[in-house]
Amino acid sequence: MSETPGISPLSADDQGPLRVVLAKLGFDGHDRGLKVVARTLRDAGMEVIYLGLRQTTDSIVAACEQEDADVIGLSMHNAGHLTLAPRMVQAVEEAGLGVPVVIGGIVPAEDVTVLIEAGVAAVLGPGASTEEVVAAVRAAVAHQSPAR
């Protein structure tokens, strides 16, 4: 865990490690980045539930409920983010989960604002460092439910 100095995996009130569901939606098969992120978060002490490829908003919502997840992380590389990311946010809302959605991958700068307005908690891109990845996930959870 030498890469993440100063970032505690545990929340202040000690409810155990953050639980992160990671997935890719639809046909997009670019999983290198998501696997790197999975190991990064795990090494930072989080509990990673890696769903992998070909997930749907339904399967992700179901996994969140079952695993009592704190945050959803998706990676999107095939330019479907403007359609898929808002759908994910909506599905989470409809299920009443109150879980933030963090996104990484290929998202052009002008689309980042659109996604944030649509309710995505954070968007990271190529070259994001370990510290940035861990910090974005923690900040998303802290912002969503300050207690955690």
Binding site: G26, F27, D28, N78, A79, G80, L82, T83, L84
Partner: peptide, 22 residues
């Protein structure tokens, strides 16, 4: 494009947003 590469038609539910893109 992705739907063609995955052997699905353009009106498959997963093709939304991917048709003719890549």
């Amino acid at each position: 494009d992705m739907p063609t590469l995955m052997g699905r038609d353009s009106d498959h539910e997963w093709s939304v947003g991917e048709v003719g893109r890549a």
